[in-house]
Amino acid sequence: MTDDDDLRARLRRADPAADLPPYDTSHLLETTMTATTTAPRRPMLTLAAAALVLIAALGTWFLLRPSGDPAGPVAAPTVTELTAPGIAAKCVEPSADRLKEAADFAFAGTVTGVDGGTVTLKVTKVYRGAAADQVRIAQTGDISETMLGSGKFETGKDYLVASARGSMLICGYSGEASAPGLPQLYDTAF
């Protein structure tokens, strides 16, 4: 046992935090406890990174997608296609007012299929904008932080998606319908 004590003592002498200067905790504590009551649940950085990733992914998809689309479904439902904004790498806290202001199209939908990079959603409710039966959006395979909720489109799940001039709004404005706060945001905005 004494051997253990020796070992522990030797390790302790090498402790890099042994003489860490004192630190005023009150400020950090205050920001922490106030931050959570107002800030969205996901950290800003994640959202910013997610925005960039989605922009890149949608951009790539937009460039590579077939120009004509002759193989569309025969019944030809109204299809709305969304792309990503080329700006907005940083996110501010989502607010119903801004959503109301920015979004010209917003809907609730269920993912019916994920095919390669394209996600197809069956529209269940249009909050704002022209009625559509189907919406197609691009998804980046294994990137998991693009939206609120689980972070990506998965078949069978319900989503709330808003867009402005054909660009999907992220930064806390679109995501899984079960994501905390998102349905309320939509209810308040529309």
Partner: peptide, 29 residues
């Protein structure tokens, strides 16, 4: 906070330690 600060100071550089300390406290709260 004090304990976690030490924990982080032992394992990463100061600026990362600061960021992670904030994250950690937020999660704890």
């Amino acid at each position: 906070i004090d304990a976690v600060r030490r924990f982080l100071a032992r394992r990463t550089d100061p600026s990362t330690a600061d960021d992670v300390l904030q994250d950690t406290l937020l999660v704890c709260w």
